[in-house]
Design a protein around this nucleic acid. Sequence first.
DNA 1: CTGGTAGTCTAGAACCGTTCTAGACTATTG
DNA 2: CAATAGTCTAGAACGGTTCTAGACTACCAG
Lengths: 139, 139
Amino acid sequence: MTTIRPYTKALDGLKAAGLRPTRQRLGLGRLLFEGGDRHVTAEQLHAQAAAAGLRVSLATVYNTLNQFSTAGLLREVVVESGRSYFDTNTSDHHHFFFEGSGDLQDIPGEQVKVSDIPEAPAGTQVARVDVIVRVRSGR
Amino acid sequence: MTTIRPYTKALDGLKAAGLRPTRQRLGLGRLLFEGGDRHVTAEQLHAQAAAAGLRVSLATVYNTLNQFSTAGLLREVVVESGRSYFDTNTSDHHHFFFEGSGDLQDIPGEQVKVSDIPEAPAGTQVARVDVIVRVRSGR
DNA sequence: CTGGTAGTCTAGAACCGTTCTAGACTATTG
DNA sequence: CAATAGTCTAGAACGGTTCTAGACTACCAG
């Protein structure tokens, strides 16, 4: 069990994607990847960066999140029409969505089995299967 | 096999939801429910209404779609962050999403089995399980 | 180390789908 | 045929996201 430094993954990813390791991207990468799995919106990350003393514009937060996503470092999760979440867990898994609070929570991929999906129409291929379990406050 | 008139479902639903059967709501209901299962955006329905000679404002289309949804006549499907689809099929089923065209296609509910979902946290209950199979043009 | 250049960052404007607003209109009731 | 509660509309407002033009910076060649 080697502990991997938070920068490593982001740095490698940046390199692979041909993105320069700038102060902003490294700072955001650190915030994103040093603390386990997270689900953040652009606004949240922007606020967190400001709180951590990292000066980044909101536009750069959006750019960076999108670049990280296409580089495969993040995964975009769509659960509400007006908002995008970015998930630092890029492995195969699904989500609980708490309708009241708007929070997301991972469900490990092995724990959910989806079967008997019909074949994709000719000339197409399955890019991903998303399972969203929508949960609301009980009662 | 009794053929059910397109208005019937909408009318009953409106009544049950305490909504008056106005020209706009009946017209939109007809467009929505008389032609098998559909997935429409507000813009699309607005355009279709205009093409059919039904004068309705976009605001009313939005209001009506939302009212129909809360009345259980429609089901809102979220697959892209900036846009909402409304599905006339309210039975238990899932979706193919074609990333290129932005089209949706039903997958019958019995055809997909989702198993081993962990229990929802205490004090919460599962409202719905959405499965979205994202498909892109093959190659 | 220096200058050139391609890539990046930023503030603010623009954009786009959706919701809100105030006033005109209409279905319903008695 | 009122009275009234609900509905419709055009346009403004809103909120998240993307675009823009210009300043800045990482990188490379010399």
